[in-house]
């Protein structure tokens, strides 16, 4: 489904963020990417979201080299991916409901579909009673649940979560991971990056360990080892 082919990324000043990364991810996998800060986890995610271009190599999503897509049609590709970030990245002047609805509106879905799907997803992430709250009125865990709701509303093939629990306490971390696990069990591929040893070890799924821009371990039923 996803294939990184000898991807190298050097920033303009010459510092390498990724060097020669080759890895494949199959449909319905749950993959954790672990490593110290600056190991290249976020750069890897940015490559996948076509936020940055590789200096060498290519990234394929279902046979398409995503970095050959023109900027004007990138949004079609991105609708196949739901994204969750450490800093939530909700739209501040939209309510929880509107933040989730925005992804559907932008994809051109019909009004009646939106009216029926958004409340369902809000219930799924346990925010049915906070639909009209703005992000500033929600706790970190709640904001992240809105972000997950927004990521899954269009039934994407892939969920990418960059440090989704980085700003959350243990209880909220547990809840977020449970939701992601459930989404994966329903058949969506999930890729997360994390620092959290507890999260990785409890999962018992594939773990890719990165160090200095290189993949140093790739375990099927991995643990957090650094």
């Amino acid at each position: 489904m996803i294939y990184f082919d000898n991807v190298t990324k050097e920033y303009r000043d010459g510092t390498p963020a990724l060097s020669d990364v080759t890895l494949g991810i199959s449909p319905k996998e749950f993959v954790s990417i672990v490593g110290h800060s600056g190991a290249g986890k976020t750069t890897l995610i940015k490559m996948l979201l076509a936020q940055e271009k590789p200096s060498q190599g290519a990234v394929f999503f279902e046979e398409v080299d995503i970095h050959t897509l023109p900027s004007s049609s990138l949004h079609h590709y991105r609708r196949k991916i739901g994204t969750v970030f450490q800093d939530f990245r909700l739209i501040p002047n939209k309510t929880a409901y509107e933040n989730i609805a925005f992804a559907m509106e932008a994809a051109g879905r019909a009004d009646d579909e939106i009216a029926s799907d958004v409340p369902y997803i809000l219930d799924l992430v346990d925010l049915g009673d906070k639909a009209d709250h703005f992000p500033s009125q929600l706790s970190g865990g709640e904001q992240q649940r809105v972000a997950i709701g927004r990521a899954i509303i269009n039934q994407p093939d892939l969920i990418v979560a960059d440090e989704p629990t980085g700003n959350l306490d243990p209880v909220n971390t547990y809840e977020i991971i449970e939701i992601l696990k459930k989404i994966n069990e329903l058949g969506t591929t999930v890729i997360i990056t994390t620092h959290n040893k507890g999260v990785v070890d409890a999962m018992g799924k594939r773990v890719i360990t990165m160090e200095k821009g290189k993949v140093v371990r790739d375990d099927k039923n991995g643990h957090y080892i650094l």
Partner: peptide, 17 residues
């Protein structure tokens, strides 16, 4: 500006943003 970046990542077209 951050909002615009988020809209792009959520899959909104340039026109729609």
């Amino acid at each position: 500006r951050d909002e615009i970046a988020v809209m792009r990542l959520v899959g909104a077209s340039n026109m729609y943003i």
